[in-house]
Design a protein around this nucleic acid. Structure first.
Length: 273
DNA sequence: CGAGTGCCCTGACAGC
DNA sequence: TGCTGTCAGGGCACTC
């Protein structure tokens, strides 16, 4: 599932390809009209000014004051080659080498829509999104204040994108494992001394995964069609009943906020703060 | 308004 | 072999 490292990998590949190119035509393909593809056709004739990222969202400001918003959802793949099936959107570009961009999304969780630049009212998660995890805006002081605002389990709160952006199910589990924090610990009960560590582990896990071009479980591919290599580095996620790399105890799997959640019941004990 | 629940959607896989 | 059931989860609508 694409999280920040996967989206950032895609962004880095899209930027040199798309920046400065004219969208000759933008069209829905095998997708119904609706909020996930709203206004897409209006991108036709506009020039792509940049390829930015905010959390797991790709943001492409356009020349006429609009902004193309792309979210890969669970199975979204962007490619210059026609994948043949599950194509939801297609851009025709002023580019002689790679004149088409295909947005493929088997499970339809993704989005590809147009808004007025910077107007994220219709996208509540983007609208109230926390700081970028790899920026200086994400630091122990800021994070402590954010965590104090919620009694939700720390894992649930991380997935909300509010205290910090871009952390999804895989990297939440990994960062909590690395910080030895139980995923059900209420956010406002995370020990003060653990907060700087959690901040650093979120940064480290995400940065290392970007370095490896992300994590491919099933569907995720880079724009060049490559898989992400970070799957080999996962310590907790997907390792149910396997020994914890730190202490050898079997990794547990529970459900938190409807998501499979992996942790070491010995290392990550501080459930009640 | 914060918090909790369930839905969307379809491929992969287990079990029979 | 082919069918059925289960699982995967980001974001958001809905409810309390």
């Amino acid at each position: 599932m694409p999280e920040l490292p996967e989206v950032e990998t895609v962004r880095q590949e899209l930027e040199p390809w798309l920046s400065g190119k004219v969208i000759r035509k933008a069209e829905r393909v095998d997708a119904p009209e609706g909020p996930k593809y709203r206004g897409l056709e209006l991108a036709s004739g506009q020039t792509i000014q940049a390829v930015n990222r905010r959390g797991k969202f790709l943001l492409l400001p356009l020349s006429h004051g609009d902004e193309l918003i792309v979210h890969l959802g669970m199975t979204g793949i962007i490619s210059p080659n026609d994948p043949g099936k599950h194509v939801r959107a297609k851009l025709s570009l002023s580019d002689s080498e790679k004149p088409f961009l295909y947005f493929q999304d088997a499970r339809r969780f993704g989005r590809f829509l147009l808004v007025k630049a910077g107007d994220y009212q219709t996208l509540p998660t983007l609208f109230s999104m926390g700081p970028e995890p790899l920026s200086d805006d994400f630091n122990p002081e800021q994070f402590r204040i954010a965590l104090a605002k919620s009694s939700m389990p720390i894992k649930t709160y991380l997935l909300s994108q509010k205290p910090v952006s871009g952390v999804g199910n895989i990297y939440a589990d990994e960062a909590l494992w690395a910080s030895k924090i139980h995923p059900l610990t209420p956010a406002n009960k995370v020990a003060r001394r653990q907060i700087p560590l959690l901040v650093q582990m979120i940064k480290d896990v995400l940065a290392a995964s970007i370095e490896a071009q992300g994590t491919t479980l099933n569907d995720y591919r880079t724009v060049n069609g490559e898989v992400g290599a970070y799957i080999d580095e996962l310590k907790a996620y997907g390792h149910k009943e396997e020994p914890c790399p730190r202490c050898g105890t079997a990794i547990s799997k529970i459900v938190v906020a409807g998501r499979g959640t992996h942790f070491c019941p010995k290392c990550q004990k501080n459930k009640d703060g």
